[in-house]
């Protein structure tokens, strides 16, 4: 009995220490006011004044501010749009690759898997910097296109949303490939043979059998790409232009440029609430899948 209790308590303590406590701190700052102080907000908790006086100073003013200024909801919407589109693009690129890997001869698969994972051994920042070198006006891509004679003057790709999509798809497609690959690899080939024997064309068999059976992998991959993309900061700030509006960038600006910790915290709390919806959906999907397997 005791052992069971301890076993259950450990993950909960983990959650408490690494999620709930930091969240409570951020939430508390979101309720305070910006001030010229160190750290730059007020009130700060003071044992002498007591908890009552402390709580009385807190209010939801910063959340009201978020609704009054259209910058924020535009940034949330724009982040959602960018996250949806990039998830879709990643799926478009990732699925055929995962399919190819799963269909490849058994002895090739570890090598192909290695090729997908290998870029992770290089720092993420360096890989994004490399894209800056590829996409800039004098970059490799434009040089190549001009050399082939396809275009006369360089295309402006760097510092636009296109560059952001390229960066996100490049960075996150392994997260899409891996779950889809593991779903496709387990797929029983005889089911497709059966479909074809029963008169399906290859395309129909793919659409009616392969896709539905890899659905769990697709859903898992989409969530793994969608969730981090929504709060992405590094890619839009390095590859995007000044009109690339993403909430991660707004959050950074609030914190580092505006030094407005309370508003930055309020933005973070709302972002978290936005993320909870897909995370809960993801959990339910995983659970259903597990139940189905049992």
């Amino acid at each position: 009995m005791m052992r069971r209790f301890v076993l259950i308590a450990i993950p909960y303590l983990w959650l408490l220490a690494l999620f709930l406590v930091p969240f409570a701190i951020v939430f508390k700052i979101a309720l305070s006011d910006a001030a010229i102080a160190r750290p730059p907000y007020f009130p700060q908790f003071d044992w002498v004044e007591g908890i009552g006086a402390f709580l009385a100073e807190l209010d939801f003013e910063n959340f009201v501010w978020l609704t009054e200024d259209d910058l924020y909801w535009k940034a949330y919407l724009s982040s959602l749009r960018i996250a949806f589109i990039s998830t879709f693009l990643t799926l478009l690129v990732g699925y055929p690759m995962a399919y190819g890997m799963a269909r490849a001869p058994e002895e090739w698969r570890p090598t192909l898997m290695m090729l997908v994972i290998l870029p992770f051994w290089t720092s993420f920042l360096i890989r994004v910097y490399a894209w800056m070198g590829i996409l800039s006006n004098e970059g490799l891509l434009n040089q190549f296109l001009i050399w082939t004679g396809l275009i006369d003057s360089p295309l402006t790709i760097l510092n636009t949303n296109t560059a952001v999509y390229i960066g996100i798809v490049y960075t996150y497609f392994p997260f899409m490939i891996l779950p889809i690959y593991s779903a496709l690899e387990r797929l029983d080939g005889s089911l497709i043979e059966a479909a074809e024997d029963l008169g399906c064309s290859r395309l129909q068999a793919f659409w009616l059998v392969t896709i539905p059976l890899s659905r769990a992998g697709i859903i898992a991959g989409c969530f793994l790409v969608f969730i981090p993309t929504l709060g992405e900061f590094v890619i839009p700030s390095l590859l995007g232009g000044s009109d690339t509006l993403m909430i991660g960038k707004v959050l950074w600006e609030e914190f580092f440029s505006n030094r407005d910790w309370p508003v930055a915290s309020a933005v973070a709390v709302v972002l978290l609430l936005l993320l909870i919806v897909p995370i809960v959906l993801f959990q339910r999907n995983q659970q259903k899948q597990q139940e189905a397997e049992q």
């Binding site: 910058l71 000044s242 440029s257």
Partner: peptide, 11 residues
């Protein structure tokens, strides 16, 4: 600072 963010992002 808010004005600056708006000016820069063009919204």
């Amino acid at each position: 600072t808010r004005m600056w963010t708006k000016v820069k992002s063009g919204t």
